[in-house]
Design a protein around this nucleic acid. Structure first.
Length: 216
DNA sequence: AACCGTCGCAACCGCCGAATT
DNA sequence: CAATTCGGCGGTTGCGACGGT
């Protein structure tokens, strides 16, 4: 159970959880590598951080994903690919690990998406779409078709205040989300989508969530 | 009841960029 | 400025739970 460096591995015990929570209550988050020294906990800093972020943090929502969360994740994944931390940042109470697991175990099956083995292919583009479940997406029979937009707007809107790529992003709210459309909607390459660019981050913070919710 | 295969989730690993020394 | 440390991310693995035979 202990690695060569003396750190424990595997599932956390109740006692370990308690020690970690006590530490964070007193010292706050961060300085994860200090925890082992300060508390005697035989866990590396990374493991402590992960345990807190994915399980112990009071902001983490437990339990099944709702249909709304599923739809939101599907749409965000469609936009962002496997940027789990970005996606999770826009699904309240869910962690990147939760979102990633949920995608890999439930949603990718639901959508008929196969994972490729190859690591180099990365991102959502590494995934192929099986035609068998075409038009099953978003698999919620109650979900409103995009055409029933709240404003009754029809057709893509060109936003002149945004770069072209942003406009295209924004217009994805009007996508028909059949599986084939899902595939074809992956219009960007990871190179096109520089998520570290401040403009895009501002865009995401200010816009994406709005239209994502509107589209549900 | 025992065995076996599958599933789902928690945790680990390797890598990278930022911050610090 | 180089080396080291730290925090974060995405991909992958390990294992317990569960269902079928």
């Amino acid at each position: 159970m202990e690695g060569a460096n003396g750190y424990r591995k595997g599932l956390w015990t109740v006692e370990e959880d308690r020690i970690l929570m006590d530490y964070i209550r007193v010292h706050g988050k961060g300085k994860w590598n200090r925890i082992a020294k300060v508390t005697g906990l035989k866990r590396c800093g990374k493991s402590c951080r992960l345990r807190w972020m994915n399980y112990l943090s009071p902001s983490v929502k437990r339990g099944d994903f709702s249909q709304e969360e599923d739809d939101l994740i599907i749409r965000l994944h469609n936009l962002l690919g496997n940027r789990w931390s970005l996606i999770a940042g826009r699904v309240p109470g869910r962690t990147d690990n939760q979102v990633k697991n949920h995608w890999n175990t439930h949603l990718s099956k639901k959508l008929g998406i196969k994972k490729h083995k190859s690591k180099s292919e990365g991102s959502s583009q590494a995934q192929s779409i099986e035609a068998k479940e075409a038009h099953s997406m978003p698999s919620n029979p109650d979900s409103k078709p995009p055409s029933e937009d709240k404003n009754g707007e029809t057709g893509p809107e060109v936003r002149e205040d945004l770069p072209r790529s942003m406009t295209m992003l924004a217009n994805t709210q009007d996508m028909e989300m059949g599986t084939e459309d899902y595939e074809s909607s992956l219009w960007f390459s990871t190179g096109d989508l520089d998520l570290n660019a401040p403009s895009l981050m501002q865009f995401l913070d200010g816009h994406v969530l709005d239209f994502v919710w509107d589209g549900l």
